[in-house]
């Protein structure tokens, strides 16, 4: 079953499309990275999935249900941590947990208390006085103690120092290892995503550029180098994502359709970061290029 299904999903603010014609599937049980430049539509996508906003076009299916029509049934099963991880600043940690208990039927109070203890946070402390990392952890605790089947995180570690980031991801991965949860998180920090995620979605220019398991993505992309030449022969068989030429040399980043048997090219493996960057600079179709330019 797919935890998340987007079909031609679009959201428009005024005349500007924040997300357009987005179609993808997130299989259940995966940890999916949502990558893209600012303004690419990552936040919009996550907000549409949790029902904080309504689609302008297309549809979104969450655990087989509609966030708009089936909100009452769906909300207890979906957890969400927004980018600024808003918390009621005047509340103490104990009161935040009580809020979770009051507003969520599936609340696991033991889990929440155990995590707060592990974070070595005092329950009587005001949330507003915590550091950014601690607030993020509290927000995550709130989302996890709800026992969701799908957890959506919008740039949860963007403002955290490396140690806080590591602790956050550790807590997240421990929750995943307990099973029964699908995670979608958007982030800029590719190194983190590579350790933690097994699926990748690249969003750019409000559209999906690439979606699939990370291992497949890394295995199927190659950098090809050769003395300056026309990439046409390669382009017939494989998808050229990025090409660059100097006077003497041509470099291509391709999505290979099988092995590259053309002997004149030197083949190099390529890491995830290079792949992602290539796609973010990628204009997928002449149509889009015109639209962006004009």
């Amino acid at each position: 079953m797919n935890a998340l299904e987007l079909d031609g999903l679009g959201k428009r603010y005024g005349s500007k499309w924040a997300l357009r014609d987005c179609t993808l599937e997130v299989p259940a049980g995966t940890v999916t990275a949502l990558v893209g430049p600012n303004g690419a539509g990552k936040t919009t996508l996550l907000q549409l999935a949790v029902g904080l906003t309504r689609p302008s076009a297309g549809s979104v299916g969450v655990l087989g249900l509609s966030p708009q029509r089936d909100a009452r049934e769906l909300l207890p099963r979906v957890g969400f941590v927004a980018q600024e991880h808003p918390l009621h600043r005047g509340f103490t940690i104990a009161e935040m947990l009580r809020l979770g208990r009051e507003l969520n039927p599936r609340w696991d109070d033991a889990l929440a208390r155990e995590r707060i203890e592990r974070l070595e946070l005092a329950r009587g402390q005001r949330v507003g006085k915590l550091s950014g990392g601690q607030q993020a952890q509290v927000a995550l605790t709130l989302a996890l103690a709800k026992r969701p089947e799908l957890l959506l995180l919008d740039e949860p570690v963007a403002s955290l120092d490396p140690l806080a980031r590591r602790e956050f991801l550790t807590m997240l991965m421990e929750a995943v290892s307990e099973g029964g949860i699908t995670v979608v998180l958007s982030s800029h920090i590719l190194a983190d995503l590579e350790r933690v995620c097994d699926h990748l979605v690249i969003l750019s220019h409000a559209q999906t550029q690439l979606a699939g398991p990370i291992d497949d993505v890394v295995a199927s992309h190659r950098v090809l180098t050769a003395p300056r030449t026309d990439p046409a022969t390669v382009a017939r068989v494989h998808q050229v994502i990025r090409e660059s030429h100097t006077e003497r040399q041509t470099t291509l980043l391709v999505r290979a359709n099988g092995h590259v048997y053309d002997a004149c090219w030197e083949i190099h493996p390529v890491d995830l970061e290079e792949i992602v960057l290539a796609y973010l600079g990628y204009a997928p179709a002449p149509l889009l290029r015109e639209a962006v330019a004009g």
Binding site: T170, V176, D198
Partner: peptide
């Protein structure tokens, strides 16, 4: 155990 590795390395349990 998977959980122990995940706790110490913060990697995906599937890995």
């Amino acid at each position: 155990t998977v959980k122990e590795v995940v706790s110490s390395l913060a990697i995906n349990p599937n890995t």
